Simulated assay, not measured.
Amino acid sequence: MNTRIYKEVFFEATHRLIHYRGKCFRLHGHQWRVEVWIDGKADERTGIVLDYNCIKEVVGRFDHQVILNKDDPMAACIEEFHPVVTTSGDPTSEHLAGLIAEMIDAEAARQGHDARVAKIRVWESTTCYAERTYDRQ
């Protein structure tokens, strides 16, 4: 029998979108909100699908970071003063949703849990989010 758990996590981070022509081309920050739904089998001994702290720790890797496309020329300049988290494309909420889901799935597997992200929402403001859903049947 599968069980679904939910966790909400917030982080602060700066990003910019080099392939976008508008305000988001400029370096700017958000308070990001991540909502994650995990489907899995509860451990027989503990009754836990996945420790909520696992989700918090994965998302926390982005907290107070500068997140840039690996091809952004600004990345090397900023890296002289502050670590930069680079992504394979522009760090949109859509892209971050997929990346964070992959990271959570990998950490759950590493810890030996039979648990996967079923749905994830990444909010970059109080009115805008990207959502990914996964059919794992």
Rank of each mutant, 00 (worst) to 15 (best):
5 I>T: 06
15 H>V: 03
35 E>H: 08
91 P>V: 08
18 I>H: 03
46 T>G: 03
5 I>L: 08
73 P>E: 04
35 E>T: 08
42 A>Q: 09
96 L>S: 09
49 V>L: 13
90 D>G: 09
88 S>F: 12
68 L>D: 09
108 A>D: 01
11 F>G: 01
11 F>C: 03
71 D>Y: 14
45 R>F: 13
103 M>S: 03
110 R>E: 04
73 P>Y: 06
77 C>D: 15
78 I>G: 07
124 E>G: 02
96 L>H: 15
59 V>A: 08
101 A>P: 01
95 H>N: 10
98 G>S: 02
62 F>L: 05
110 R>I: 00
85 V>E: 06
63 D>C: 05
49 V>H: 11
23 K>P: 01
88 S>Q: 12
45 R>D: 13
94 E>A: 13
46 T>S: 11
99 L>E: 03
123 W>H: 07
48 I>C: 08
4 R>T: 13
91 P>E: 10
7 K>N: 07
97 A>Q: 04
45 R>E: 15
116 R>E: 11
19 H>W: 14
104 I>H: 02
136 R>T: 11
81 F>L: 14
62 F>I: 00
94 E>N: 13
21 R>M: 07
38 I>T: 00
74 M>S: 13
79 E>T: 14
7 K>E: 08
137 Q>K: 08
49 V>R: 12
17 L>D: 06
63 D>M: 05
121 R>T: 02
112 G>D: 01
89 G>Q: 11
80 E>Y: 07
39 D>P: 07
134 Y>F: 15
18 I>D: 02
116 R>F: 14
74 M>P: 09
117 V>F: 03
96 L>F: 14
123 W>P: 02
46 T>C: 09
2 N>S: 12
124 E>S: 03
11 F>V: 05
99 L>K: 02
85 V>R: 11
91 P>H: 13
116 R>Q: 14
118 A>F: 02
43 D>L: 00
62 F>E: 00
61 R>T: 05
131 E>I: 04
53 N>T: 15
14 T>C: 15
79 E>Y: 13
52 Y>E: 08
48 I>V: 13
59 V>L: 11
50 L>S: 00
135 D>S: 01
18 I>S: 04
111 Q>S: 06
108 A>G: 02
127 T>M: 04
2 N>Q: 12
125 S>C: 09
128 C>Y: 13
106 A>R: 11
25 F>D: 06
90 D>T: 09
102 E>L: 00
71 D>E: 14
107 E>H: 06
77 C>F: 14
98 G>K: 02
128 C>H: 12
6 Y>S: 08
88 S>I: 08
119 K>H: 14
71 D>M: 13
30 H>K: 04
81 F>V: 10
28 H>R: 12
117 V>P: 00
125 S>L: 11
132 R>V: 02
55 I>D: 06
12 E>P: 09
108 A>F: 00
52 Y>N: 11
93 S>Q: 03
56 K>G: 03
60 G>N: 08
40 G>P: 01
5 I>D: 05
16 R>S: 01
78 I>H: 03
16 R>F: 05
90 D>R: 13
81 F>I: 10
25 F>G: 06
136 R>H: 15
98 G>I: 01
97 A>H: 06
112 G>E: 00
92 T>Q: 14
104 I>Q: 00
94 E>G: 12
3 T>D: 15
14 T>K: 14
82 H>A: 05
118 A>E: 01
74 M>Y: 15
54 C>F: 09
40 G>N: 04
26 R>W: 15
126 T>N: 07
